[in-house]
Design a protein around this nucleic acid. Structure first.
Lengths: 230, 230
DNA sequence: ACAAAAGTGTTGAGAGTACACCCATGC
DNA sequence: GCATGGGTGTACTCTCAACACTTTTGT
């Protein structure tokens, strides 16, 4: 349930132009995997507050724009890629978070195969770069907390969903999948146990292909099983 | 991380009065347990849209009010109770959800011991009542979906947190705790296995007291262990 | 005495963990 | 031929599920 239509509110009908109104922003934690490390996309702020500091990309939600739609716009402003996995994380709405004015921020996180994405530096950033998630610069606002929370969610979902696959291309080797799990959990896993567990779930099916790269035995490529629960 | 200060947004500084602004509401799913059943507090709408239908209590967030603060205000408007467990669930922000105007709704859920709460019918409700979660009337907006999602979250957290304790008084019997788990999971549990599992976690400590009610052996009262992880 | 919930152990199955060697390839 | 990741099985431990009878009380 990453997305939904849905409710609204009770309360007196009230003329809609009497209602209190808020500035709403969306931030997107974009994660990928390269060189065996989880990495997050950060932008160097050109504007105040926190000018010159690294932060998670985000922006204001437009009047006629859904939240997920806004999140995808943020993604598009900072990178080129289609059909990125995107999930809402949490909404921060304390009154004093932003020195300029009261802002409510809805945070999303996104996962993408590094081969499918090219970053771009948007107009309001001085620079845009991938940083290893376990080796970050100082971050604006409390974006560090936010990344911790993202990681927590990701680790939780890794166990009972197929979310980890979002960091890989459609066909991949079991070794590559293991690297994904190890990067997210930040610990080594036993190769035999990992394979046994993954294969026992029947969510993968072997292809006829193998991947040959480097001086070693070619690895079988697997793909996500077309009819898999979870 | 139910609460937090936190971030805001990137993007050009922009004059803050140029920024797009949104109506934001907060809905609160309030759950309790009585007569061995999970129950949710619903209000019969006096106003349009969905006039006369049952819905989850909610209201508009004020300009200088935090989101959790707003959620507690909604609680206070419909019931009397202090220190209720409250957690953010999800934010719905599609553009066409409310026929009146575009509304972004942040949904919270809350758990309370039935003995600690008295409901009240607020000014904009025709009636306010507890309904068994597994036996609901037709609901306004897509509040039915929302309750399903709440239940999903609750079931998930039940396994690895002590969230279930929020539905009980400070001291309770193992039988009462088992009723909580059975109500949330909607299935019978084995008494011996349940006790073994709960006691093996060391999150409970026995008190010197017992609870005597009804024609049967008195049950020992337990309380939440002062120094417990999770 | 009887009705009602409290309280208490053992067994079997399945899941998770630890652990070491041969295979196929590129250079 | 050697360096590199691919690929495979077994034994032990621990957790989870199934299952029935005695105890203490109120009426």
């Amino acid at each position: 349930m990453t997305t939904s239509e849905k409710p609204a509110t009770t309360g007196q009908p009230a003329q809609t132009d009497d209602l209190p109104r808020h500035v709403v922003s969306v931030d997107v934690v974009l994660l990928t995997l390269s060189e065996r490390k989880l990495r997050v996309l950060l932008v160097k702020r050109r504007a105040r507050p926190f000018e010159g500091m690294w932060s998670i990309p985000g922006g204001f939600v437009r009047v006629d724009e859904g939240l997920e739609e806004a999140a995808r716009r943020m993604l598009a402003e900072n990178a080129d890629a289609r059909n990125i996995y995107l999930e809402q994380l949490y909404t921060f709405g304390e009154t004093q978070r932003d020195p300029r004015t009261r802002v409510i921020t809805v945070v999303y996180y996104a996962l993408v195969d590094q081969a499918r994405i090219a970053v771009r530096t948007s107009a309001d950033a001085e620079e845009t770069r991938w940083f290893p998630l376990y080796d970050l610069p100082a971050l604006a606002f409390d974006h560090a907390t936010l990344l911790e929370y993202t990681l927590q969610r990701l680790r939780g979902k890794l166990e009972y969903t197929t979310i980890g696959f979002q960091l890989l291309p459609p066909a991949f080797t079991l070794g590559e999948l293991q690297v994904v799990y190890e990067a997210i959990l930040d610990r080594k896993l036993d190769k035999r146990n990992f394979r046994k567990k993954i294969l026992s779930t029947d969510i993968l099916e072997p292809t006829e292909l193998t991947k040959m790269e480097g001086p070693h035995r070619p690895a079988r490529l697997y793909r996500f099983h077309p009819g898999a629960a979870r």
